[in-house]
Amino acid sequence: MSVSSRDESGGATPHAFSSPEIEAVYRAIRSRRDMRHFLPDPVAPAILTRLLEAAHCAPSVGYMQPWRFIRVTDRGLRGRLGELVEAERLATADALGERGAEFMRLKVEGIREAGEVLVVSLMPDRERFVFGRRTLPEMDLASVACGIQNLWLAARAEGLGMGWVSLFDPETLRTLLGIPEGGRPIAILCLGHVEQFYDAPMLEQEGWDQRRTLNDLVFEDIWGRQYPR
């Protein structure tokens, strides 16, 4: 798919990037994958810093910047993270009922193999931020998710894979990492070099589910009215 820097009517869009730059952004979006298989090669410190800076450039409601990152380098601590994930993996399989055995065949993390492991947490004392959150307090979580997506796309552009692991008990992980009360870990990110990127999302390749069509997800004016495209 090629991307033009001209709008639908053919007029110029003066604030657009150049066509190759636009295409690079869309390429990163299309080829990003939730990776589970990693090589043990280390991530260059300069690249890791760039990725964290990209995350920190994310939008946040009320400019609260609620993201906090903990880089986990201790191998023993990584092992503890792996144990937390395994415990939740078993509980999830049980909750899935007839799909439990199918779920157990999936690889759900690369904590022990990845060059870098980051735990992302919501900061404590978030209740003092009201701007944009009075009726939607969960916008703190949405803001952190934007930061994670920034990091993910930047990682793909740098040729690194990343996987978001959410199979853990948040309170147990909070205590393990000494996160202050009121903080809430929401992601274990496995980041590093990969042999290759999946041709399609892994869960799609494994037959777990398929991507919905855009027509099923975009409406116009009222719910259910198909968006004309």
Rank of each mutant, 00 (worst) to 15 (best):
V3I: 15
S5K: 14
S5C: 13
S5M: 11
R6L: 13
R6Q: 12
E8N: 11
A12K: 12
A12I: 14
A12G: 08
A12Q: 12
A16S: 15
E21V: 01
I22F: 14
I22S: 07
I22C: 13
V25T: 09
Y26S: 00
R27E: 11
R32T: 06
R33M: 14
R33H: 11
R36N: 09
R36V: 12
H37T: 12
H37E: 15
L39S: 11
P40Y: 15
V43A: 10
P45N: 00
A46I: 05
L48T: 01
T49Y: 06
T49W: 05
R50Y: 01
H56I: 01
A58L: 09
S60C: 07
M64Y: 12
P66T: 02
P66Q: 02
W67I: 06
V72K: 02
V72Y: 03
V72C: 08
T73D: 15
T73A: 14
D74G: 11
R75P: 04
L77F: 09
R80W: 03
R80T: 05
G82L: 00
V85H: 15
E88M: 15
L90E: 14
L90D: 10
A91Y: 07
T92G: 00
A93L: 09
E98N: 11
G100Y: 10
L106Y: 11
V108D: 03
E109H: 14
G110H: 04
R112F: 04
G115D: 04
V117D: 01
L118S: 07
S121E: 00
M123T: 01
M123F: 05
D125T: 05
D125S: 10
V130D: 06
V130W: 08
G132A: 04
R134V: 05
T135K: 14
T135N: 12
L136Q: 10
P137R: 04
M139G: 03
A142K: 13
C146F: 08
I148E: 06
L151F: 09
L151M: 13
W152H: 07
A155S: 14
A157C: 01
E158S: 05
G159R: 01
D169W: 10
P170F: 10
T172W: 05
T172M: 13
L173R: 00
T175A: 08
I179C: 14
E181Q: 13
R184S: 06
R184F: 02
R184P: 00
P185N: 08
I186R: 00
A187H: 03
I188C: 02
L189K: 00
C190A: 07
V194W: 08
V194F: 10
E195S: 14
A200W: 10
A200E: 15
P201D: 08
E204F: 03
E204D: 11
G207P: 04
G207S: 05
W208N: 00
Q210E: 11
R212S: 08
T213C: 06
D216S: 12
V218D: 07
F219K: 00
D221I: 04
W223K: 04
G224K: 07
G224F: 09
P228E: 11
R229E: 02
R229S: 03
